[in-house]
Design a protein around this nucleic acid. Structure first.
Lengths: 234, 234
DNA sequence: CCTACCGATCGGTAGG
DNA sequence: CCTACCGATCGGTAGG
């Protein structure tokens, strides 16, 4: 209840909302605060909350998950998540935004690594995109993107619009690859519809894929490539 | 509000739960009942409830739809849906079961019509299956299957198992067609994974397809065929 | 099928 | 971040 004026700043920085003077205000506090009980570690708690929320939202759905569930999962009391997030839906948005950002980063890395080492044929690039997408979707600890795919109904219109922009950027990386494949005849369908159908095929796997199941992510990637591409090289 | 003593039996028959002696018991009542207030029109109300529930579940999701929303939609008071369904989840199951039954019937009709008139090549059969599936999924008044696809988390385990059986029967019709295409080389991917990926591609369209949008169901069918099948005839 | 409820739960807040 | 709440809503039920 006292001296933790550094908290709001840290929090807003994570959210990318730090007002211009925030850090200055913090530096005004001299030395470490004494009342340490509420001097919980750091804006770290925010990340922990988002992670727990992602897991629960994925497992039970947004509406069926109470903010109390989330609080309990991270060892907080029922009202405390609202110290970090102004609403339940803000938490949901944080999950999705974090998911999209890291998914996109991962996608860019994968593309760069591919064009650096392996060849850079459209076939290979599509395989890389698919494999990465499956990883983001089904890999260990990947609750964020499934939540984004299946819970966006619960966002506010403004949040949905924000997220759509991020999704657009993610999908934009696919367009040239698909276009190239269409040009060579390896992809016969209309490019735009093909993209939607392909994302559907992949995204749906979040509903049935099990990491302890029959197929591996590599096998699934191969199956997808075999399904979509006409002239697969041996 | 009069004469529909046949209703309880009809109702239970729809649910497939009519106890052996139900109809007999009903026939025991002679003529029309006099106390007419609770003699509401018919088991018709049940169908109306299921239809309204499907619409709302699809639009807002199961958890975000209250039984009061459904009651209001059909002009009932808040407690009345529970006269027809013993729980909210029973209503959800009714939506899904009704959706699967009619989808499967429609699929069988489409297959019969196809093998009667058009040729019966695996290509044509797959096109028929896809087209029908899209119709069931995206056609006018089709809220049932999307609800089934996206809300089954809210079923009880027993309900889920029941539904899985119906889904299995629906999907079973696809297996020989896909197998035949695989044999001829028109489908390169592993048949089981191909089926999952194809259903994903189609099912996902419930998320983005708009009946007033760019593509028609026919165009979407063509795109899907072009995407999945290697040696499409002209 | 309505009336009149009930207990439980939920998102969120004040105040420290 | 906790304590102690609050108003609203929800699924469901008794009793007619």
């Amino acid at each position: 209840m006292v001296m933790r004026m550094d908290k709001p700043a840290a929090r807003e920085a994570v959210a990318g909302l730090a007002p211009p003077g925030a850090e200055v205000a913090i530096k005004r506090a001299r030395g470490r605060p004494r009342k340490t009980l509420d001097e919980r570690d750091d804006g770290n708690r925010r990340v922990v909350l988002v992670r727990a929320a992602a897991k629960l939202f994925r497992k039970k759905g947004f509406d069926a998950t109470s903010t109390r569930d989330i609080a309990t999962a991270v060892g907080m009391r029922s009202g405390s998540p609202f110290y970090h997030f102004k609403s339940k839906s803000a938490l949901l948005y944080a999950v999705m935004e974090e998911g999209m950002r890291s998914a996109h980063e991962q996608q860019l890395s994968a593309l760069q690594a591919a064009s650096a080492s392996q060849g850079t044929s459209p076939h290979q690039l599509l395989a890389v995109l698919i494999r990465n997408h499956l990883d983001v979707l089904l890999g260990p600890g990947s609750d964020f993107i499934p939540v984004m795919l299946y819970e966006s109904r619960s966002l506010t219109p403004r949040q949905r619009a924000s997220l759509a922009k991020l999704q657009g950027e993610y999908e934009a990386d696919w367009a040239p690859v698909l276009q190239a494949l269409h040009t060579t005849g390896a992809l016969k369908a209309d490019v735009k519809l093909a993209r939607l159908l392909i994302f559907g095929a992949l995204n749906w796997s979040a509903q049935w894929f099990s990491r302890r199941g029959a197929a591996s992510l590599d096998e699934l990637t191969d199956a997808a490539m075999a399904l979509f591409i006409k002239d697969l090289p041996p």
